[in-house]
Write a protein that binds this DNA or RNA. Structure first.
Lengths: 344, 344
DNA sequence: CTGAAAGCGCTTACAG
DNA sequence: CTGAAAGCGCTTACAG
């Protein structure tokens, strides 16, 4: 079936105008008389003409393509981010090239993006090595990291105030009367996990406490479950635990309640981070820190658009506020109980 | 800042060969002598040359682009599908153009895909009107629907055997001794929801039962919660409910246990469909039908690749088997109890 | 406002 | 194996 694509020359012939006139008719600021435009549009409609975006990209040097790099989607914060990101970018007239990356194929993927002349790169659940980021920036392609950062890299970033969030959680647990407070980390090399932990220590210190125990969950469901088993076996189990993100916190709650027959929050308080949709589900009702995916996405796209506009690629960072969301998975401090269930 | 992209002509100049030789060096089957290839590669490396994929697409008429159209990602079956789809396509040398669609912008999105000369279109949580699908197929662009179908459309499709799955669930509930069995639908116009429902009726009939009550959840968390409230208010509440997908089933369980203080499965049995990861989480332990995302994705990509290869676009459909996964959310029939927790 | 012409960076017959 | 040349479908100065 007629794979033959119709071109602007075909339309020009039918409309009895030059090919340039056709092109101008389909270009935002093109100067064409109403009469010409009408003839062109009619001919285009008759032939079913659709401008070739690849050709346009080639000649204009602007692909209107933005690459989105993601490593995994099982933490539901990322599907949410992905959806918002794609919609936001589409609205601004960009197309999204999606790349899923594994542990070893970072370089391959970046080469593919660069070959497709993407105008910018946004990385959500993945991080680029400094050298790869430099390679991108050297070609004039801005890189924005979302929910992570790399100190010595030219990549811009958007993060939540993870230090402050961790700190608030520490205050909440300490003020709730807990005295054996544990932490389950994500990945050790994750800036987000590290900052949340650092803030948590700071908050504990401000209440005269130190961390009781620590384990690593690696951001996976199974890893977190395993960490919970290790942390809570034996006599002197913790009376509260901060899990570096909600996704892992659900696994921890399952182990605590299902395997160890502990009550949450009567026996153990659990708090998480992210406020993914499931945190609000009845079965978990997780007390957590909300970081607005909407705001993060908007900030990331803003930075990207600015850097695409100006030729210079300069590193720019945005830190968004953290907001405690109190639900049922952790004992609420008396002082806070005045406004039960409230968000603050 | 060297935004100046280096071209094959630049490499040719440095290597003292023709531009054609450079091109051949970077083309899979290009005939170049080892000596020439070496010189070209050295020069390319020195200049940091990267072939321009846009130019290649333009001249070869093959964009290596596949469009992925998705409507929402809150049902976690779709992020999973998206991830697998992107990885599979990448592996086969295709780039993924991601489009999120809303209720009204189907046409805009399809035009954008077509302008970018995508070689194929895969639709996951979205469906194309027959006329739009025809438009795509008329330009020679194959369309594959995943987890849905449109009878009078030229679009191919991959689905689970939803009728058989619904039937198995009916048998399971009826054999479990339930006598007031309800159903919560997704969207009325969804082929998937309709087939699951039809199979469910068939299975009930085979056990001499008919549906006790019915409500519509619209595939949303809130809609399903609302449906559950309506279905279970008053005296003669159902003793079992089949919810058209897992995502809604979680909402239903939350309402049942959290608001209505009913025990699952002692007071009410709940079954879902999809076997998304959360169905296995301790807090839900949902009995459901597994449809393999991996198999669906592979089948969809197979169909697409076949249709891209041969010029003819012919509708092709694949139906994958349904598999019951027994967990704790529904009473297990005595006859089945021999193998508790088993999958069959 | 309009058309002829150059050119974006490649691939691919075509001769040699 | 190699190079000169044509051409993919557009945009964009440049004259008129």
């Amino acid at each position: 079936m007629a794979k033959m694509s119709v071109t602007s020359a075909d339309v020009a012939r039918l409309a009895r105008v030059s090919q340039s006139a056709v092109s101008r008719t389909f270009s935002p600021g093109g100067s064409v008389s109403p009469k010409t435009r009408e003839r062109v549009l009619a001919a285009a409609h008759e032939l079913g003409y659709r401008p070739n975006a690849i050709a346009r990209a080639m000649i204009s040097g602007r692909s209107r393509l933005v690459a989105l790099l993601v490593a995994y989607l099982d933490n539901h914060f990322y599907p949410l981010v992905l959806e918002l990101l794609a919609r936001e970018l589409q609205e601004r007239g960009y197309q999204v090239l999606l790349f899923m990356t594994g542990p070893g194929d970072q370089d391959t993927v970046v080469q593919a993006m660069l070959q497709f002349q993407v105008e910018g790169i946004i990385m959500a659940s993945a991080t680029l090595s400094s050298s790869l980021a430099s390679e991108c920036v050297n070609t004039g392609t801005p890189v924005v990291l979302l929910n992570r950062y790399v100190p010595s890299s030219p990549a811009s970033s958007v993060v939540c105030d993870n230090i402050e969030g961790g700190r608030q959680l520490a205050h909440f647990l300490a003020d709730g009367g807990h005295r054996k407070i544990a932490f389950i980390a994500g990945q050790e090399d994750s800036s987000t996990s590290r900052d949340r932990e650092a803030g948590f220590y700071k908050g504990l210190a401000e209440r005269g406490q130190t961390l009781y125990r620590r384990a690593i969950g690696g951001y996976t469901f199974e890893g977190a479950a395993e960490a919970a088993r290790r942390l809570f076996k034996g006599k002197d189990r913790p009376d509260a635990v901060f899990v570096a993100n909600d996704h892992m916190a659900f696994a921890v709650m399952d182990v605590l309640r299902g395997e160890l027959k502990l009550r949450v929050p009567e026996d153990v308080s659990v708090v998480g981070y992210d406020d993914v949709p499931e945190a609000g589900w009845g079965a978990y009702a997780l007390t957590t820190i909300a970081q607005s995916a909407t705001d993060m996405v908007r900030a990331a796209v803003d930075i990207l658009m600015e850097q695409i506009a100006q030729q210079e690629v300069q590193r720019r960072s945005t830190i968004l506020p953290a907001r405690l969301v109190v639900r049922g998975s952790a004992r609420v401090p008396k002082a806070w109980a005045a406004t039960p269930g409230a968000e603050r």
